[in-house]
Computed example of a mutant assay.
Amino acid sequence: MRNIHIKSMDESNLLMEWPGAISKDIMKEIAAWQHAIEKNLGHLIIECFAAYRSLLITYDHQQIDAEDLEIELLKLPIDRKKFRTKKWAVPVCYEEEFAQDLLPYCDAKKLTKKSIIKLHTAPLYDIHFYGFLPGFMYLGGLDEKLAIPRKSNPDAKIPAGSVAIGGNQTGIYPTQSPGGWHVIGNSPIPLFDITLDPPCPFSPGDHIKFKAISKKEYLKTKEEVTNGTYKYQKA
């Protein structure tokens, strides 16, 4: 474990910060800490917010103060090896009707559609944290060949389920929203449902594998989602 810097932000928030560059190892440590905190100190914690190199802990200041919470944190048994993560398969249809930016993206990258799909579905992506929108996963692992600057003029409406690339990241828009990433496909599965516990099907520290599907498979999956029979698939 690295030397972690812990500081009080206000009477209800404590920030844990990890030194060094963004990495898979730091992601695993943050996920292990979050799991241990929620498991052992859940009665004191309101919520934990993970980022690439930090973990913000919102706690009930009427039960504990920052100094005592830090003491409790340092007592926690953190074993990254015992923290189990899962690998999930996420279906994506890369047909042009679901991928508004795919053809111009191909031109910009000087790559064929087939090459882009192959490169995009090859990695096992790491879920570092959720942010921007409820259910929006910040993923690590995009092939450098696919990196592209974000759009200078963002789109007003990106459809829910849009799989996109911006900078050196890829992600899925869980709901319709404005956005400046390049849309190369669409996933038919839900990524955020406030009626479920937890509302997001995947956890920080888990891994995502994109799986290319046909339009027929896409529509079939959409129907399963609508009927409530869809089950998330392990990779």
Rank of each mutant, 00 (worst) to 15 (best):
S214K: 04
L111T: 01
Q34A: 15
F129A: 00
Q176A: 15
Y138A: 00
I189R: 02
L55F: 05
P149K: 11
Q62P: 00
S115D: 07
E17F: 12
G171Q: 12
N153H: 13
A160R: 15
L142T: 06
A108M: 08
A51M: 07
W88D: 08
H35C: 11
K28F: 13
I71A: 09
W18E: 07
S187E: 10
L139H: 06
K39I: 03
C48A: 13
R2G: 00
T221L: 06
I37Y: 02
F132L: 13
D126V: 02
Q233W: 01
E72L: 06
L55R: 09
Y218A: 06
K109H: 03
E67T: 11
M1D: 05
C106I: 01
T170P: 08
T229R: 10
K151P: 05
W33S: 07
L15C: 11
P178Q: 06
K28E: 09
T221E: 03
K82Q: 14
P19M: 07
R53P: 03
L146K: 09
R80V: 06
A212L: 02
V163W: 12
S12H: 13
H120D: 01
I30Q: 05
P159K: 15
E217I: 01
L44R: 11
P198K: 08
L139Q: 03
R2A: 10
L74Q: 14
L41Q: 13
K82W: 00
E144L: 12
L74R: 15
K209A: 04
A164T: 02
A50R: 03
Y173C: 09
D10P: 12
P199H: 10
I184K: 03
I194D: 08
R2P: 00
M9G: 00
C200K: 11
D60Q: 14
K113Y: 03
D155H: 13
R150S: 04
L119A: 12
N186R: 15
C106S: 00
R2V: 08
E72V: 01
N13V: 10
K113C: 04
E95W: 00
L76V: 02
A51F: 08
P198M: 10
K151A: 03
W33R: 14
I22Y: 11
L124E: 14
A108S: 12
V225C: 07
F129T: 03
K39N: 09
I22W: 13
D65E: 09
S8R: 12
L73A: 02
W181F: 09
Y125W: 04
K216M: 02
K24G: 04
H128T: 04
F202C: 01
I22K: 05
E224R: 09
Y230W: 14
F129H: 02
G166M: 02
W181G: 01
H5S: 11
S177W: 10
L73V: 05
Q34C: 15
F202M: 11
A108P: 03
A50C: 01
E224F: 05
A31Q: 09
S162F: 13
K87C: 07
I172R: 05
G171H: 08
L102W: 00
L56T: 11
